[in-house]
């Protein structure tokens, strides 16, 4: 039997398979944050972004386009046109999403830069695959494209192997999850040590400079808290930098999902769920929300009501405040 899935799934899965990025971003674009840092391409520890933070502003545009789109309308057939385009020449997000704000692009792009700076500050030495880095394929796994993933990951591993690294540090818990639990099932001798950004910071947290800030509240990411059992570490890190943490009623392994995972198929519902989580977090008494996952960051931002004064940041962005410029 053959099945026809919603178009957005076709677009995303084909993009990953053909272009190594769910939104077909170019390697040079994904790696642009690293200009000037002169990171080596080989080393013991591989810094892995998977392009996830970099693509966030584009996901939102894709979702926005879909939300305002009635299947059967003109715009919809334009999208279909875009899909044909994808089959022939590859998807062109630059043109498609001309509406993406430069400030959003800059913000999400700089998350990787800031993460690298924080790790440097803690005296970690690492390498980065630059333009060659490929997306982990986590969405293929999430969305059920496992047969495709099995083929795709072999290419990712080739790139990783070129670095000569033994350990991979992932910024996104989704990448860490698939490297840890899925890759070993699909790739022979995938024996890399998989760490998260949070792990590494936690180990050297004593070295972090103090940060002046009012209290914060942590939004535990589902993957980080439940799959990877990382939640106390976040609190320890914040304690080390001298910041008070308020707790949401549902936290740690009981954390409420940000709604992000269904954003591409059910954007309005995802938005409602994100908004509810923002409110749940604010009930802690802090309006400064920190998370440690690209999708949580974007989904919570999306769920923030107009005019809401709450601040939502990735832990990376927050810790960068303590880094000397």
């Amino acid at each position: 039997m053959e099945t026809k899935m919603p178009m957005v799934l076709d677009v995303i899965s084909e993009n990953i398979i053909k272009h190594g990025s769910p939104l077909a971003l170019k390697g040079s674009e994904v790696a642009s944050w690293a200009k000037g840092l002169n990171l080596p391409v080989k080393g013991e520890l591989l810094f892995y972004t998977g392009g996830e933070y970099q693509m966030l502003p584009f996901i939102d545009s894709l979702v926005k386009t879909i939300t305002h789109l009635d299947q059967g309308s003109k715009v919809f057939s334009m999208m279909m046109g875009a899909r044909n385009l994808l089959n022939k020449t590859g998807f062109s997000p630059e043109k498609m999403y001309a509406s993406v704000l430069a400030k959003d692009k800059d913000r999400y792009n700089s998350v990787c830069f800031k993460a690298a700076k924080v790790l440097k500050e803690l005296e970690y030495e690492f390498c980065y695959s630059g333009n060659d880095e490929l997306y982990s394929g986590a969405l293929l796994y999430e969305l059920g494209y496992l047969e495709d993933m099995e083929k795709y990951v072999q290419r990712v591993v080739e790139v990783i192997k070129k670095s000569g690294a033994k350990t991979i540090v992932c910024l996104s818990p989704h990448a860490a999850e698939v490297f840890k639990f899925i890759y070993p099932k699909m790739v022979k001798d995938f024996d890399f040590e998989i760490r998260t950004f949070v792990d590494l910071v936690w180990e050297r947290r004593e070295k972090l400079a103090k940060i002046q800030s009012k209290s914060v509240v942590i939004h535990d990411s589902c993957r980080l808290a439940r799959e990877l059992s990382i939640h106390q570490e976040l609190r320890d890190i914040l304690e080390s930098v001298g910041v008070e943490v308020k707790e949401a009623a549902m936290n740690r392994e009981w954390t409420s999902c940000c709604g992000g995972p269904i954003k591409i198929l059910f954007p309005e519902l995802s938005h409602v769920i994100g908004g509810r989580r923002v409110n749940e977090l604010k009930e802690s008494g802090s309006e400064h929300i920190l998370t440690s996952c690209p999708y949580c960051l974007s989904a919570l931002e999306g769920g923030l009501a107009k005019g809401d004064s709450a601040v939502i940041e990735d832990l990376i962005e927050f810790l960068y405040r303590g880094v000397k410029a």
Binding site: T3, P6, E142, R226, S256
Partner: peptide, 16 residues
């Protein structure tokens, strides 16, 4: 089931 299957967040709190 198919549409329902894709509206699950796979967030895992149900398992808890």
């Amino acid at each position: 089931a198919a549409p329902l299957v894709y509206s699950c967040l796979r967030c895992g709190r149900c398992v808890e």
